[in-house]
Design a protein around this nucleic acid. Structure first.
Lengths: 249, 249
DNA sequence: ATACTTTGGTTATTACTTCTAACCAACGGA
DNA sequence: TCCGTTGGTTAGAAGTAATAACCAAAGTAT
């Protein structure tokens, strides 16, 4: 009767049966956390070598010294492990971008943010592809991921908050205006990072910068620049500079 | 002695044993071509539903009414099938872009080309991801793919050949200049599509446009714009307009 | 200290995947 | 009519994710 048929399908945090210091670190919990972290670490190495599709739970288990099914005590499924890695990856790149959010002229700040994103992505190409793409056939990104993604782009918002859209970007700005009006979470997000200036303009510039980053980095990590003397950074500078011009920074 | 141990590992074009009207359509060859085309068609449907990783040769065979191993008489491996689909995909998108290469002012021509690319990509999202990404763990893109990719971007070259790089794009232009100097195939490519104007400028603008397209389309096909009222086309117009401004079109 | 529960591991199994090997019938050219 | 090529088959190897059943060790409570 103690357990009964109650929600047996979440191996993430077991020992929910009896009361015991809530969210305190029992030895079991510490062991559990450490093994989970080791699994993720090994998985990251595998992903770094062959991409998300090269991640094999059996191989992870073998490298960890246990048999395959043991991992299912720590992660409900392969997709669950991927999801956790993706969320952590978002946090990582968000930290890298945030660390580059200094002071100075808007144009220089924009370049610094863009280079930080680019640098992280080039240093972890497979992880970037993991965040960007769809790792498994029917993989569904969790709702949290959009929150994390917003943390990545957040530091770009204040840079553009003081800019001005050229006529070609006015439809986009109008669309952003509607978006921020209809979605309170977006309004909150913009206000948190760029309390001053026009939210729609900040969003328009940020989304354009997002596309630039995604484009340059995608091409680079997929090796499309092979032969033309690693033009990733140069190309990024060029397109970001064009964007800065276009937004009057 | 007729066959001996001679190169048995290419099921692409069998019946190499005896002389028979070279590259003429024997009934066997016609049947072969038709089955190959059916396989590719079914594979495309599967990819369109779940991406490249969802392509299962067994499932294709079942849907075709044969057993799994039969497919290996038509394609050496799963990657071989993927490669062929990728090459055909490049041809398709190249044709779509080429069809939009009309006359008129450079800025309008650029928008038309960009919209053509974007339209094809959002109509075939999984195929676009197939061309862009790495479908299998150790997949190696064949050399032909770069040639095909050049055909996709070729129509952009003449649009930018009459443009001018702003200072922020000068390093990129310099890099393109070295690239075209050191790689005869690139020089040939640029000359074929844009015989007039500065090759380095044409390349710089084209590569920047490439990054824009890749960025906007990548984000869109991965569903990152969910919620903000399908901004793919609007965003594309905005960034392309900024690029046109930046290149003085 | 003893009894009991929870947990982390095991092996066995299912259902899938790509791909190879061996084999056979039927088609088609001489 | 003969016979080689070809397209199909079944069987099997080696791998994957995931589940079920089970057991020993660890931790908790009395």
């Amino acid at each position: 009767m103690i357990l009964g048929p109650g929600r047996r399908d979440e191996p993430q945090t077991p020992m929910r049966g009896i009361h015991h210091n809530e969210r305190m670190s029992t030895p079991r919990q510490r062991y559990r956390d450490q093994v989970r972290s080791e699994i993720k670490q090994i998985a990251l190495v595998q992903i770094g070598e062959g991409g998300a599709t090269a991640l094999s739970l059996n191989a992870v288990a073998k490298q960890l010294g246990v048999t395959g099914p043991a991992l299912y005590k720590y992660f409900r499924s392969r997709d669950d492990l991927l999801t956790e890695l993706i969320l952590e990856g978002f946090d990582e790149v968000a930290a890298a971008v945030r660390a580059a959010a200094g002071q100075g002229a808007p144009r220089e700040r924009l370049h610094a943010l863009a280079r930080a994103f680019h640098g992280w992505a080039v240093a972890n190409p497979h992880l970037f592809q993991l965040l960007a793409g769809t790792p498994s056939p029917g993989y569904q990104a969790p709702p949290e991921s959009v929150m994390r993604a917003r943390n990545v782009l957040g530091p770009f918002l204040p840079v553009f908050a003081g800019g001005r859209c050229r006529p070609g970007a006015e439809p986009l700005r109008e669309q952003m205006r509607r978006w921020v009006e209809e979605t309170p979470a977006v309004a909150e997000w913009v206000r948190a990072f760029a309390p001053d200036g026009d939210p729609a303009t900040a969003l328009a510039g940020t989304v354009m910068a997002w596309a630039q980053l995604q484009g340059v980095v995608s091409l680079e990590v997929q090796g499309q620049f092979a032969g033309m003397g690693h033009s990733g950074a140069t190309l990024l500078d060029a397109v970001i500079d064009a964007l800065a011009d276009s937004m009057g920074l």
